[in-house]
């Protein structure tokens, strides 16, 4: 299994490629800049497409280097399942590099935003105009996932990697046949449905 690298190490490498963060914008400035840019740029397809809630933003390109950082066997298998689903779309996801999706797992406990949360994705580095995500942090919370069956863990892997392709959550109202891993909640459904695939293909 790949060795663990500090996320900051990866992040710094990615940020070195991005001109805006190197300017040293304050958060208030960055937020206001995004506001200003939103006035002159068209709406990002990431937020206009399938499920605005829980949408971490669309990736900067179709090549997705997935970096597994000392994962448990269960999380590792779940990530492999997620990658197999990404590759049913226009995305080209591989394990042969790093810098797009850094995957970690740990017993994060139940406090704060980890309450009842088995996995999550956070965009840690945006492209210069803040229109796409260049670097995602993906985390499995073993506090919950360790008690899952492999199929249930696979659903989390599919779900979280779906977020890294720009997908938001599905609900009972938007997934009436209940066959998408993008529904939130404990499930053994570990695949994208055609709607998910179409959404990824149309926004990437």
């Amino acid at each position: 299994m790949p060795m663990t690298r500090s996320f900051d190490e990866v992040n710094q490498t990615a940020r070195a490629l991005l001109p805006l963060p190197s300017v040293g914008l304050s958060t208030a400035a960055a937020t206001a800049l995004m506001l200003a840019l939103s006035m002159i740029l068209p709406a990002s397809p990431a937020f206009a497409g399938h499920g605005a809630q829980a949408n971490s933003g669309t990736p900067d390109d179709r090549n997705h280097y997935i970096d597994r950082n000392s994962l448990t066997a269960k999380s590792d298998s779940a990530t492999v399942q997620g990658v197999s689903q990404l590759n049913r779309t226009v995305m080209n996801a591989t394990f042969s590099g790093s810098g797009d999706v850094e995957v970690y797992d740990d017993y994060y406990g139940t406090g704060g935003d980890w309450q009842s949360v088995s996995g999550k994705v956070t965009c840690m580095g945006y492209t210069p105009l803040y229109t796409h995500c260049d670097l995602y942090l993906m985390q499995y919370n073993l506090t919950y996932v360790a008690g899952y069956s492999q199929s249930q863990a696979d659903q989390v892997g599919c779900h979280e990697l779906g977020h890294t392709a720009g997908l938001g959550h599905r609900t009972s109202a938007t997934d009436t046949d209940n066959n998408s891993c993008m529904r939130s909640g404990l499930s053994t459904w570990r695949y994208f449905d055609q709607h998910d695939i179409d959404a990824v293909n149309s926004t990437n």
């Binding site: 040293g24 958060t27 949408n55 935003d113 009842s116 088995s118 994705v121 659903q155 779900h159 977020h163």
Partner: peptide, 30 residues
């Protein structure tokens, strides 16, 4: 805002911001 952002960073203040600038997206729920 770029100008104000650079000057704010240049002040070297370690104070944590009073407002959020990032969203914690809802994760997969147990």
């Amino acid at each position: 805002v770029i100008a104000s952002g650079c000057s704010l960073n240049g002040s070297g203040s370690d104070a944590l911001p009073d407002g959020p600038s990032q969203i914690i997206h809802e994760g997969d729920r147990a």
